[in-house]
Amino acid sequence: MAKTELDLYSYWSWEGRPKITWPGDAKLAFWVAPNIEFYELDPPENPFRKPWPHPYPPVPGYSIRDYGNRVGHHRQMALLDKYGIRGSISLSAALCEHHPEIVSLCAERDWEFFSHGVYNTRYTYGLSEDEERAMIEDAMATIEGAVGKRPAGYLAPALSHSDHTIDLFAEAGGIYTCDLFHDDQPTPVSTRSGKRFVSIPYSLELNDTIAYVVQRMEPRRYGEIIRRAFDELLAEGSEKGTVMCIPTHNYQVSCPHRLRAFEEALEYITGHSDVWVTTGREIADFYLEHCYDDALAAMGAAP
């Protein structure tokens, strides 16, 4: 039975919250989340969602994603290196097996790896609770085996969810989710195990695939909306402490006709001194240690 209400968080108004001060007195925590994904050429049919718009072989969709791994990844990585940004990777775990070279390049740079399921062509839909638990564990164990550290965060594969997704991920040892788009600050999330668990803002609005594929933006307009979001969140951040995330894909933002516009935005953001350039895990760790209890107390006291 579908629930009529989401029970992961309660209403909490943007006005009147306790102030978050990020490390180094920063007003804004800024992170970039490159999705590094593997899409299968011939995935099993899922009764709830079609992986590809074209009949087999889905040449257009498959090839551009493969292009991202073969060509785009290096370009995005070089750009993030240039601006001193460590990526927080939303990783299809099977990519550790298919393309370990990419995983090594990111591990050498001390980038974060969080779980994005096994393949981006395998959805949560149609799985029993036990099967979903097994899929989540498979992805966690595969990534841990490849990089020596268990992922802290989860973005469900292709944003496909069940009623148990976040409960199961917390039980698997995760501390944060990227699947909720309800806020511009981290917020406590209640799960059935009662573990300390948070949502870290991961913006769909600034996600390059939404911008380029759904909204069909011109590259410089994408750069412009990133700068506008940054200006607003930085200004608000001096009073409350905010988070800004740019989720990217190595087959979108890294294309040669788009990278320059993205670079201009990164240059602008990293040119500010009151910004904490960080990773998803570091934001979650800091929040859980310094802000989580205050937030719960303030939410309890809120009208």
Partner: peptide, 20 residues
């Protein structure tokens, strides 16, 4: 939905080799 026949090094088909 949880069976992975081509989960291996390189591509999940035999049309071309994997390389960056």
């Amino acid at each position: 939905l949880l069976t992975y026949e081509r989960r291996r090094y390189g591509m999940d088909h035999d049309r071309y080799d994997w390389s960056m």
